[in-house]
């Protein structure tokens, strides 16, 4: 088995584990972490595919897609965390 294929399968496993955790753990912070790990798994599948066969040229398009994906993921996570903090402060009676 070649190395890139091995890492795409690792990516698939990460996505599956994160899917399980996303629905079985209820704390929003954990669910955000699960989504981030799922994202990493998906990015791994993309990049693994980009060099699935040794000897072919590495394809820069998936690399660019993953970089965009990372930025989008961190933006969404950051906003989610602010929302969470806001909700927690509302729970403490602050405004």
């Amino acid at each position: 088995m070649n190395m890139a294929l091995w890492f795409t399968l690792v990516g698939a496993a990460l996505a599956a584990i994160a899917l399980h955790a996303f629905f079985s753990r209820r704390h929003p912070l954990r669910r955000l972490i699960a989504l981030n790990i799922m994202g990493s798994g998906i990015f791994l599948v993309l990049i693994g595919l980009a060099r699935l066969y040794p000897g072919t040229l590495p394809d820069p398009v998936p690399h660019a897609m993953v970089l965009t994906g990372i930025v989008v993921a961190v933006s969404a996570t950051a906003f989610g965390l602010v929302l969470l903090r806001r909700l927690a402060r509302l729970g403490r009676g602050e405004t």
Binding site: F22, M38, G39, I42, V45, L49, L52, P62
Partner: peptide
């Protein structure tokens, strides 16, 4: 409601992106 919407919307995007990754492959 917003927090729940956010989590599910992100989850939906992840599934979509995974599908797009396979199509690109």
């Amino acid at each position: 409601a917003a927090l729940r919407y956010l989590l599910l919307a992100l989850f939906g995007s992840m599934l979509y992106l995974l599908g797009v990754a396979l199509l690109y492959g």
